[in-house]
């Protein structure tokens, strides 16, 4: 399976471990990622706040640079993903916008027809194109005993992306289970990390980060798995600041889901891009080096009281 690949600015340096692990994992799974030549920044959440049309034109340049033989684009960063996807969608929905973006691109001898490139998040491709069954087959070092909190954040699921539930996503849950991890089903998994709020109001940003760390800690997560460099940065690099601000002592390592995949698929710690996280992942990962027997499923506990009322069942419930 071949895809155009749009890394985005963060993956060049601050999220290099995401890039490294994604490339190694893709290679192992037989995915061919061809980097879009001379791609530019997607504008993050900032450009749309300044100039609307230039923002769409900025994003559309990347879509225009995708070679004609590649119908799909893999995007690891959730912010880039939402901007690329939204630009394609709005160009399709609002012909006047499409026309003016087209005129702008033409000034650079480029052109893009809406619908020409299907923009997909890396997680979507791994879970839905490769599939959890195929991944399970490739697992050589299952993450048995590791309690992983899948953290989706916002932009991978909202605005509605069509591949997962915008309020209660489960794709990464299934993937991590396929890797042998114990998935922590905690309620805040699709809440916001604060995005660029660290640059605007530290007080507000720290509170948003604290809520997530607190909730993951309440559910005894060993590690938080994320799908976006912005989420990783906020939860990892600001964890110390949050601890100082609130007098707390969270030490939850924040890894990219591709890093955990790399480990489970038997790749080295270097190939998994480990070591660049600010909150050390060492204590948590020690758990999978020593084989911890699989934890008893707490859900199987019997009702204590005959008077207890039945719980409604959920369609997608873990057996």
């Amino acid at each position: 399976m071949r895809y155009a690949y749009y890394p985005g600015c963060s993956l060049e340096r601050s999220a290099a471990s995401y890039h490294t692990s994604a490339m190694k994992v893709a290679d192992r799974l037989g995915l061919v990622f061809q980097e879009v030549d001379d791609w530019n920044c997607c504008g993050a959440t900032e450009y749309f706040a300044i100039n609307l049309l230039p923002a769409y034109a900025l994003v559309a340049r990347n879509l225009a640079l995708v070679p004609g033989d590649l119908a799909q684009m893999a995007v690891p960063c959730s912010a880039c993903y939402v901007n690329l996807k939204k630009t394609d969608k709005y160009m399709g929905k609002y012909p006047q916008l499409a026309q003016r973006v087209g005129q702008s691109l033409a000034a650079g001898q480029l052109g893009y027809r809406p619908g020409g490139v299907q923009v997909r998040h890396l997680l979507d491709i791994i879970v839905n194109d490769v599939g959890c069954d195929a991944i399970t087959k490739g697992v050589v070092k299952p993450l048995t005993g590791l309690r992983v909190a899948p953290y989706y954040g916002c932009l991978i699921v909202r605005p509605e992306n069509g591949f997962d539930n915008p309020e209660y996503p489960t794709s990464m849950d299934r993937l991590l289970r396929a890797l042998g991890a114990k998935v922590v089903d905690y309620p805040l998994k699709a809440q916001c990390c604060g995005g660029h709020m660290t640059q605007i109001s530290e007080k507000v940003a720290y509170e948003l980060i604290r809520r997530l760390l607190h909730n993951a800690a309440e559910y005894d997560a060993d590690v938080i798995a994320c799908v976006c460099p912005m989420c990783q940065l906020n939860l990892d690099a600001y964890q110390g600041n949050v601890n100082r601000h609130f007098g707390t002592d969270y030490r939850i390592p924040i890894l990219y889901f591709t890093q955990l995949m790399a480990l489970a698929l038997g790749l080295s710690a270097a190939d998994a891009g480990l070591g660049s996280e600010i909150v050390s992942a060492q204590p948590a990962l020690a758990k999978i080096a020593v084989e911890v027997p699989q934890e008893e499923d707490k859900k199987a506990r019997k009702r204590a009281d005959k008077r207890a009322l039945p719980m409604p069942t959920m369609p997608d419930e873990e057996a």
Partner: peptide, 28 residues
């Protein structure tokens, strides 16, 4: 942890990008 760039990375075709953005600003 080598996660901050001290020098900016740049695309090659900055003039093309500039032309696109200038046109977009003009249209807007």
């Amino acid at each position: 942890r080598d996660r901050l760039a001290l020098t900016p990375s740049s695309i090659r075709n900055t003039s093309q990008l500039r032309a696109i953005l200038d046109k977009a600003k003009e249209l807007e």
